[in-house]
Amino acid sequence: MLKGAIEYAPSTFEERGAAVAFTTPLLSQTRVRRGERSKLEVLIPSLSEGMGTYVVAWKSVPEMVSMTMHDRYLHDLIVKEEACSPQEIRRATLKAARRGLAGPQAAQAARRALEEDEEQGTLTHYLLLLAILKAVGLESPEMLKAGIGTEEGQRLTRQLMARAADSLKLEANLLYARLAEIAAAVAPVGLTQSPKPGRLLRGMQELKAFRQSMTSWSNEVPSDAAPVAAFCADVAQHTIGIGEKLLTDFQRRVDAIGPLMRAWETEFVVIRSHAQRMAWLLDGWSHVTAAWDVAQTEDRHQQAATINDLFRVIPLLPKKESREDMLGAAKRIKSVHRRSVRMLEDWRTGEMDMDSIRRIELVKARAP
């Protein structure tokens, strides 16, 4: 069911919805959220070059738009799993891409992302275990020398963790359970002592590079898209500012592993909330930064077209997170945007823009 156009100015991340990596150009990076009676609905911006955002019942989308095979499978997965958070949508997206429905490169990228997730989880768990032992004065060169994956290393680890639990006045099983919970919450962000940053921390680094590149392009290229690029850089900068403050507090709390274990009921709730908020904050940006990376090898005209495409899906912050002038600037920039924007698909005839689909698949190969 098409509910009609709305002025898209959500108050919260949940109201903004989570971005979905469809390959059908008109649906690319549209957002899914829970609507009335917890029913899933999708927000489609600028439908038929309109100014508003259309709210569509999730189950009705295939009836409105000609979807690729990948997108029909992904749509069904989201319906089946009732996915709605960035983490849940990402899992569904990787499942769909892994089947090869968005091309072999996207399938390979999805498999690689899943492997990296598993490796990051294992590494985070191990580093947190070492941090707990260090916090209670039980660092063990013998355990490190033996290796935690060996039988001897595991025996030493169990002994040390039992002593750590006693020091923290916890049951050993409870300490292990809490360690697993922290690792699951922290792994997507990563630890300060980790040799490899987590996925969300890498996302922040990519966003900073995007901000700088957009600023340079807007200053150096005489184009109708220059003000649009400057606006995208401004949104990125505002997102970075919020993210850096969030990361500072997140890392401070995780690094204080001893106090965290002792004040578990309050501290872990905050840590988990911070990690979830980071996921919401950066939701949709991996597509934007990867699309701009792809455009770097192309001419200025195609780069301008990419910037206009990205404006349609730029992850604007909710009103509770945004500066007062941000939504006003978005409205002003739309007039510039309309002068050079190109339609990706004629939604009334259902004709596909195959070149745009191929470009989206290239982006999926970079940002699963």
Rank of each mutant, 00 (worst) to 15 (best):
A102G: 00
D76W: 15
A110T: 02
V61L: 09
A102H: 09
R112T: 10
A113H: 00
T93H: 03
K95F: 11
R98P: 02
P62L: 05
L94G: 03
L127W: 04
Y126S: 08
L74K: 06
A109Q: 00
A96V: 08
E115N: 03
A109S: 01
T93I: 01
R111V: 06
P104Q: 05
Q120Y: 05
L127R: 00
D76E: 15
L114C: 11
S60P: 01
R111I: 11
R98D: 13
E88H: 14
W58V: 00
E81L: 14
V65Y: 02
E118S: 08
K80N: 11
E115A: 07
K59G: 04
R91M: 15
E82R: 14
R99N: 13
H125R: 13
P86F: 12
E116K: 14
R112M: 06
R72K: 15
L94P: 07
R112F: 11
C84H: 13
P62N: 04
C84G: 07
T93Y: 12
K59A: 05
E119T: 10
L101C: 08
Q105R: 12
E88N: 10
Q105K: 14
S85Q: 03
Q87Y: 13
M69W: 13
A102N: 01
E81H: 15
S66N: 09
I89L: 08
A110M: 04
E116G: 03
G103N: 02
A106Y: 00
R111M: 13
M64E: 01
R112K: 14
K59C: 03
E119V: 09
A96L: 12
D71K: 13
P86I: 05
Q87D: 10
A107G: 06
E116F: 06
E81P: 09
K95V: 08
H125I: 02
I89Y: 11
E81Q: 14
L123D: 01
L94I: 06
R72P: 07
M67Y: 01
Q120W: 06
L74C: 01
A106H: 04
R72T: 07
H75G: 00
S60R: 06
A109W: 00
H125T: 10
V79P: 05
A107V: 06
E88V: 06
G103T: 00
E116P: 04
E88L: 12
I78L: 02
A83D: 10
S85R: 08
